[in-house]
Design a protein around this nucleic acid. Structure first.
Lengths: 195, 195
DNA sequence: GCGATATGTCAACAGTTGTTGAAAAATGGA
DNA sequence: TCCATTTTTCAACAACTGTTGACATATCGC
């Protein structure tokens, strides 16, 4: 039976992937061995290779994400910051999507390929979304600063876990971030003459 | 001769430390082996242990930093954001201080003790500095958000190296960041009634 | 029952890691 | 020169890594 709707191995494959996402998200690529993942998934280390070919490919599968940024073209310009911030908090708090993001952000600083993937996500998903709502000619620096804000919030709250950040309720966090994003979107390019 | 002004070994010790700072800052704790550092410092791997006892202690020595935040009590309130931002860019761009910061931020996501050290720096250096210039009762969340902004800038520019961030001139970066920090300092606490 | 295929287990490989202790070389004062 | 101390080198250790291939077990149509 080559391709039945649900094969026996698909469930263990999913178990392995779930364990990998959880451990990679908490300790990063180098902090987790295949035997660690195999132990958590109740599987043999050789199976991980059988199903995912290599540790890198397993990590790549665990780090697969889609930002699913909301459509912004129809939104009121003053609401864009709020919308983006709310979407950010939702995506990071929901384990189904947040775990993958944690995997990515946790390992990107020490894994060159992961950093490259984040750059690709920025160029392919974040920049187009900002361009769609920014009528000023050069919106690239706005996208970059917004990305730095969002990643700064994520880093301090979910990765470094600064107490002042983890203690903040999600909706308050969203309002702060929304305000800041809106500030960037509304601002003009800073020139040398600016104080 | 027990304690001459400059002993022979002090120079190789310094060479080892410099190599460690450079490599740890670029690849993180797990991405660098003692043999890598020894190779770069033209020394024997055993020497690193002899001088620093263990890899963890060597890393700790390489990650030793002091933010040296400027005295803000006398500054005009409207200038604080600009002052902090300028100090931030200087500290990160200067290799003497920037390398140590890179070591810290690169490894903090995967090294629990390094993350703990960053939390300590935040509590011991950043929060007091913000408290000194903020007259509103609760300035802790302001300090947390400012830290997230600063770390977001550092992460995207020096660690992930988003092109839109690395291409930005230092002074432009400082002006953007200064504006944002000032916005946070001037803002009031957000309540549920806030749109 | 049989045989084929899919699934899981086991032991072992070659390489790298941090760390150690003993031996060798360099250094400088007597 | 010889001696004592500092500085460096060398070889090896035990543990862990990703990965492999051979073997065992289960599953299911017939």
């Amino acid at each position: 039976m080559p391709n039945q709707p649900t094969r026996k191995s698909d469930r263990t494959r999913a178990r392995i992937l779930a364990a990998a996402r959880e451990l990679f998200g908490e300790h990063g690529f180098d902090g987790v061995s295949l035997r660690d993942i195999a132990g958590q998934a109740d599987a043999d280390p050789a199976l991980l290779i059988r199903y995912f070919q290599s540790k890198d490919r397993l990590f790549a599968a665990a780090a697969e994400i889609d930002l699913r940024l909301p459509e912004l073209t129809g939104a009121r310009p003053d609401d864009v910051g709020c919308i983006l911030a709310a979407h950010f908090v939702e995506t990071w708090e929901d384990p189904r999507t947040g775990t993958g993001l944690r995997v990515l952000l946790r390992s990107a600083p020490t894994q060159k390929e992961t950093a490259e993937r984040m750059r690709a996500i920025f160029a392919g998903q974040v920049m187009p979304a900002i361009r769609a709502v920014d009528r000023s000619g050069a919106s690239d620096w706005k996208a970059a600063i917004i990305a730095s804000q969002v990643l700064g919030f994520a880093l301090t709250r979910y990765i470094l876990e600064l107490p002042a950040m983890t203690h903040m309720p999600g909706d308050e966090l969203a309002r702060h971030l929304g305000r800041l994003i809106q500030t960037i979107l509304d601002s003009e390019r800073i020139t040398d003459a600016d104080p």
